[in-house]
């Protein structure tokens, strides 16, 4: 192939109103409009969505899996952020 490859896009689909968009897969397209059309044809042939987002893959900033434990470490020892951390005596209602 002589010309440059089409860029990679990530596709996110909202299955129905009320749900958030969810990653469905990826595709190559020459531009944003084509990416939307291809996303429709590739990922919603059976009414799987009511809304599509496409974004150039290179624009996504991601955390590094090799750094996962260090990256998420600050949240690890803060169990007091969960309601189950607190002891409430029997008989106390609506809490």
């Amino acid at each position: 192939m002589s010309n440059k490859a089409w860029p990679l896009y990530e596709v996110f689909i909202r299955a129905k109103a009320g749900l958030s968009h969810r990653h469905a897969g990826s595709l190559h397209a020459a531009d944003d409009q084509m990416a939307l059309g291809y996303a429709r044809d590739t990922y919603t042939r059976r009414m799987e969505g009511v809304s599509i987002w496409v974004v150039r893959s290179e624009l996504i900033v991601a955390s590094d899996p090799a750094e996962t434990s260090a990256f998420f470490e600050p949240a690890k020892d803060k169990v007091y952020r969960h309601p189950t951390f607190y002891e409430i005596p029997d008989g106390v209602e609506n809490l």
Partner: peptide, 13 residues
């Protein structure tokens, strides 16, 4: 994620 661009983390050490 299906992202090729994000996959090729160089082995740093």
């Amino acid at each position: 994620m299906y992202t090729q661009g994000l996959d090729q983390k160089e082995q740093s050490t």
